[in-house]
Design a binder for these strands. Structure first.
Length: 346
DNA sequence: CATACGTGGAC
DNA sequence: TGTCCAAGTAT
């Protein structure tokens, strides 16, 4: 039965696999880069970033020698920015600790910054043919449906059970191919919503299908409560210049640049006096714009932008920059959204 | 082990 | 409009 499933999946993959820039390259650098970019990220969203990185950095050493600013700039808009910092740190690890040569075993690969069990299994199997089964969101979905696992998949015991099943299912002769087949199948056919059971080559083996539970498997326990936050960005504009500040080490968008920010607990529009008091500056609000909320898994972020004029020379902790060079900074997506429709469109 | 970390697309 | 969640990792 396991053999039959393995064969059908392999056959399906050869017929249905997408052509992707990093696929079948056999190049550990490119596979690693693609895996980092694709963490919690869809192929369509990540591909342009993959192409930009490989175009700019032909080798890991070039990546290691780049500035963090340049790497963050290339990463801008992709989210989970610690991935970019870890990517840079890992490139330096490879250059300095592995002689510039990509480590070749699971145990050494997982030492790299930003590389956990999933990514180490993916790289070692795809680039080096090591028999390590990957378990990502796709694999969890395919296996839990195939074997009819009704318990919560975020339970540690159940996760261990799924890892064991993935190990048993893995084709030890072609682990890289098989891992990609599992993920591709989960991404294209055994999808979270409206899976293509009608054309599924495994449907006769699928226990969730047999029990009419495909729609509710995999089951996840509890959902996170979301916190609402209200960000008021002060957009000072005078003679082609504006102020930016850099965010701190904690919280969202760490280290990225933004317009001077006042955060409030509830949703209301600030007036000139409140802004002057907070920024210790004399400014006047010309226009306020509310931007659609930004939804995170654990937070709802709302943005208000206040276009202001006046005197801000004495404001400390802010950097006066030319509006033309604004886009050389890594800006949170919320601000990009404002810039798309507002004044700084030169 | 629970929580934080971004963004965009689908329904 | 709200909710889910996607090739996860670090702390």
């Amino acid at each position: 039965m396991i053999n039959k499933i393995r064969g059908l999946l392999t056959q399906w993959y050869e017929l249905n696999k997408r052509t992707l820039p990093w696929r079948d390259s056999g190049d550990a650098y490119r596979i690693w880069l693609s895996e980092i970019i694709l963490q919690q990220t869809r192929v369509e969203q990540g591909t342009p970033y993959y192409l930009a990185f490989t175009n700019r950095f032909k080798t890991i050493t070039e990546l290691a020698d780049a500035s963090e600013d340049e790497i963050l700039k290339l990463w801008q808009g992709l989210g989970y920015y610690s991935r970019a910092r870890n990517l840079h740190a890992a490139a330096k690890q490879i250059k300095n600790e592995f002689g510039g040569k990509f480590p070749t075993s699971y145990e050494s690969i997982i030492q790299l910054k930003g590389v956990g069990p999933y990514t180490a299994a993916a790289i070692s199997s795809i680039a080096f043919n090591e028999a390590k089964a990957v378990v990502d969101g796709n694999v969890i979905r395919v296996i839990s449906r195939l074997f009819g696992i009704e318990e919560a998949v975020n339970n540690a015991q159940v996760q261990k059970q799924i890892q064991t099943l993935a190990d048993e299912l893995l084709d030890h002769a072609k682990p890289g191919m098989f891992n990609q087949a599992m993920m591709e199948f989960g991404a294209l056919y055994c999808t979270p919503k409206n899976p293509n059971c009608a054309e599924c080559v495994l449907s006769t083996f699928c226990i969730a299908k047999k029990n009419n539970l495909v729609a509710v498997v995999p089951f996840k326990e509890k959902k996170l409560k979301r916190r609402s936050r209200f960000f008021h960005f002060i957009v000072f504009e005078n003679e082609g210049k504006t102020f930016l500040q850099q965010r701190g080490e904690k919280d969202v968008w760490q280290g990225l640049f933004q317009f001077p920010l006042i955060e409030t607990e509830s949703d209301f529009e600030l007036d000139s006096d409140m802004i002057n008091q907070n920024l210790n500056a004399e400014i006047q609000v010309n226009k306020a714009v509310k931007v659609k909320k930004h939804v995170l898994s654990h937070q709802d972020l709302w943005g208000r932008f206040y276009h202001v004029s006046g005197e801000m020379q004495n404001v400390s902790n802010y950097k006066l920059v030319s509006i033309n060079e604004l886009h050389t900074f890594a800006l949170p997506r919320l601000i990009d959204r404002y810039l798309e429709t507002e004044p700084f469109n030169a």
